[in-house]
Nucleic acid binder design. Sequence first.
DNA 1: CGGAAATGGTTGAAGGCTAAATTACCTCGA
DNA 2: TCGAGGTAATTTAGCCTTCAACCATTTCCG
Lengths: 170, 170
Amino acid sequence: MSGPRWLNTSEMRAWRGLMGMSRLLFEQLGRELGKEAGLSMADYEVMVQLSEAEGRRLRMSDLAAMSLLSKSRLSHQVARMEATGWVRRESCPSDRRGAFAVLTDEGFAVLADAAPGHVEGVRHHLFDLLDPDEIEQLGAITTKLYQHLNTVVERDCAAPKRDGAVSEAV
Amino acid sequence: MSGPRWLNTSEMRAWRGLMGMSRLLFEQLGRELGKEAGLSMADYEVMVQLSEAEGRRLRMSDLAAMSLLSKSRLSHQVARMEATGWVRRESCPSDRRGAFAVLTDEGFAVLADAAPGHVEGVRHHLFDLLDPDEIEQLGAITTKLYQHLNTVVERDCAAPKRDGAVSEAV
DNA sequence: CGGAAATGGTTGAAGGCTAAATTACCTCGA
DNA sequence: TCGAGGTAATTTAGCCTTCAACCATTTCCG
């Protein structure tokens, strides 16, 4: 039994930095978005995905995957957004289990209004502080890690099912 | 009025990468911690801070600052941990408003049990995928951003008070 | 065909998080 | 010494998230 391989100084700096930085960054951006446009990061993310999609509509599953939300969470999220009028549900003709989430004109307008300020925030708290090299490095590192994690999460959350029932034994 | 400065390709890659990566990373580590040791990332973080402190105890405010939790959230958090027996509260003799959170022996044992697996997870999902240069870069970038954000958050959350009442006008 | 299993999506309950209000105490200055 | 204002921490209420159970439909396959 070899003891656990603890983090060295360089690793510890990266770990603490990453943890603190991402926590504060997303909290801060969320706060600003809430104050300036009255929406949450989840609202924003969902609307962005819809706005970029063909016909401003996506199947719930696809939208969930793109926004990195669980199906359940997306369902609640869309329910709230439907209540405020930013999104509408439509049933899918080809698969009667399915549902589309559609961005309404009102939703699009809200997004268009919020976007410039949000991008400014991202610049102000992130890119304005980094030089082009650092942005490249950050992109390379995070993309690589992201891809790895995607496969891990898929494996981990598909066997024990992210939602849905568990099939007992073989 | 110049239009908003949208993100260029490099920036967009870094932004999407950072967002996706950090979401998945912390979710995954949290899931593993929950499965393997029965505790949340917040539990873990709080216990680490306490375990490293003089006498395994910290004032609630200091603990909140170190763990990047709001006072309110920490109060709830510690209440739960007290109920499970991992932490105990002690009142502060020198300032009777104050309270210490103290890591119990049981809490320390739970942490000691959880730590090796958690560190393995951090290695497996993060450092094993990066070479030393990249770890250096990540550390440099995140530390710089973290420091900036700390000042921003302090400013933003101290004027409109993170808790407490607002003093009207001058 | 017909039934088992898988898929798409929703629901409800339980618990966590946030913001605002509250309690209790300390500090400073007139 | 008194009171105004600040600080430490908790509490309450409302919203959000998660987990597990559920319904409806489709697909797979003997």
